[in-house]
Design a protein around this nucleic acid. Structure first.
Lengths: 218, 218
DNA sequence: ACTAGTATTCAACGATCGTTGAATATGTGC
DNA sequence: GCACATATTCAACGATCGTTGAATACTAGT
């Protein structure tokens, strides 16, 4: 086997193990030894491939963030190309924001579920959330808000940002598939039911955006 | 000073320190030593007042959960008493769910902010969230969903639970005041602007509930 | 086949972790 | 004021933490 190939395989095995464990137990809840044990390699190999535990965590975040951002941007640009003159509906824009997540989960559920759980934890943390979310996701988010602004020209900036904030909370919790809704509903709803999510989330959130846009404040 | 009083004061000092540190850095991110250092007491005193680190964490959760649940229940019952025949609006029910949080933050911001940050972290965690949220909050949540069902008789159970799920995500992220919206909006919106939240969140979410209730699925 | 460089393992460092038992101080009831 | 119970401190346990330097196995180029 090629050396460069094996190197990448090892790196990926470490990243996969780290991703899963970080997602389940958080950054501080997992030791480098546990990660390397799950990856089937020696502890010190982690420090050959990565500078530190924190660097390993950052690389876990970065790896899939790029894929995700690229897919979301592509979905948004495709949507805008389909509407050269008029603006798309809010549902369509939100759909471009959520569809890529649904498709990634459909393709490789386990892998991406771990990643979305990780994002949910970061997003809800006051300690790390700020820097990480800003670095990896805010640029694309601003791009989406721009699209939403065009579709809701009468909406104030403040209403727009708050609406997106509510969207962000609903979205990150939903895609983390925490199982909270399974418990609460007694089995009526399932966290993993992506069809149910796709049928409801864009409609729910678009109605919220319009409610704030149509009812300007004093 | 009375001994029983001092005992309770010490216990509370430990719980306060634990609450703040757990909220900022998570359960695993904080050591018992750090907590007791902030509380200004010896390490082993933690194990005199609490069985273990995990027990200390549970007591932090329990302490304010009871206050919070009582206030929310009172707000809901007062609302229902004001509507003996007809059902309240969705906005009013959601308001009864959020108003107590706003009032607690207005009274003692710092203290409750820490607690809401803690809830947000728990709610986004697949590991702990299930058990803890179910134990402390789901009973009251079911009570609220019951009220919402009466106000939306044509809404299916599934739509109702998903709507609440979206509400839950938006609400926990918002009250955690992570500062995410401050960064994203470049200062246009502030996480701590409770007036802005009160003016927008119920309207946004109520519109979402109605959008799902009015558009039944196939 | 030999060498140079890369990937992986071994062994260990000091620090800190959660937790405990015994010793000490402090206030309470008689 | 004395005896008792309760509250707090002191000192330490073994385990595990993140990290490192040196030794070894392996592969690629010649």
């Amino acid at each position: 086997m090629q050396k460069a190939v094996q190197r990448q395989q090892t790196r990926d095995r470490i990243l996969d193990a780290a991703e899963e464990l970080f997602a389940h137990r958080g950054y501080e809840g997992v030791s480098v030894r546990q990660i390397m044990s799950q990856a089937g390699a020696d502890v010190s190999l982690a420090y050959y491939h990565f500078k530190s535990k924190r660097d390993l965590f950052d690389q876990v975040m970065l790896r899939k963030a790029e894929t995700l951002n690229a897919l979301r941007l592509k979905a948004l640009e495709a949507l805008e190309r389909r509407h050269p003159d008029d603006a798309p509906t809010i549902e369509e824009i939100i759909g471009a924001f959520t569809k890529p997540l649904l498709e990634l989960l459909a393709d490789n559920h386990e892998e991406w579920q771990h990643y979305f759980q990780l994002i949910a934890q970061i997003n809800s943390s006051s300690e790390w959330g700020g820097e990480l979310m800003t670095r990896y996701f805010d640029p694309l988010v601003s791009r989406f808000i721009e699209a939403l602004r065009k579709a809701l020209p009468e909406c104030s900036n403040e209403d727009l940002y708050w609406s997106y904030h509510f969207l962000s909370g609903a979205l990150t919790l939903t895609f983390a598939e925490t199982g909270r809704i399974d418990n609460l509903s007694g089995g009526v709803c399932r966290s993993s039911d992506m069809r149910a999510i796709n049928d409801r989330m864009p409609a729910f959130l678009a109605a919220g955006f319009r409610a704030l846009a149509d009812k300007p404040r004093d």
